[in-house]
């Protein structure tokens, strides 16, 4: 199975075929647009124009509407992400317990800003509005791993672990 694309990969026919497979059961069902985009993004890694065109054709929705939905929801992205996806929770509980300092730290240490990707394509950073682990703020997730009660030293350690890989 092809892995989701990251910064240094290119969109190939293989991925467009995957998108075709995803669309198949939903042909002509505009109501499933968001679900199809989720599936496409999880396999391709992002939603470039080529993918959006396929989804629009398949579901019978104008391309403008597909783009409208993609640009409306913050979890859809039209640019590829880094190899490791970092998210910092920017919910209230995490905010009052120091999430802002962690955001600054990544900027200082790795020149990584929310919405951005490091130059080497290793890490991308996004802010998320509450992942519901408020009891353990501030919370940072890297890929699927959740880290609670993160502070300066802990974040440095977490980053070091992924950099080694």
């Amino acid at each position: 199975m092809a892995e989701a694309l990251t910064c240094d990969n290119r969109l190939t026919q293989e991925y467009l075929d995957i998108v075709d497979e995803i669309i198949k059961p939903y042909r002509g069902q505009p109501g499933n647009l968001i679900q199809v985009l989720h599936k496409a993004q999880s396999r391709v890694g992002f939603l470039p124009r080529e993918v959006q065109v396929k989804v629009a054709d398949g579901l019978g929705v104008p391309l403008t509407k597909v783009y409208g939905v993609v640009s409306f929801y913050s979890l859809f992205n039209t640019l590829p992400k880094g190899k490791h996806k970092i998210t910092i929770c920017a919910g209230t509980a995490c905010y009052v317990r120091g999430a802002k300092q962690l955001i600054n730290q990544l900027k200082e240490d790795m020149d990584l800003e929310p919405g951005g990707t490091t130059e080497d394509g290793m890490f991308s950073l996004d802010l998320v509005r509450c992942i519901g682990a408020c009891g353990l703020g501030p919370v940072v997730t890297v890929d699927d791993e959740v880290h609670g009660k993160v502070h300066r030293e802990k974040l440095t350690k977490i980053m070091a672990k992924y950099k080694e890989e």
Binding site: Q35, V61, F72, Y73, S74, F76
Partner: peptide, 26 residues
Amino acid sequence: IRVGAGAFVCGEETALLASIEGQRGE
């Protein structure tokens, strides 16, 4: 099940309905 896509306003009921229908959650 319908899965959202990261829009706070979709907690508002009419926006939520629009989102279930596959539209922008306005």
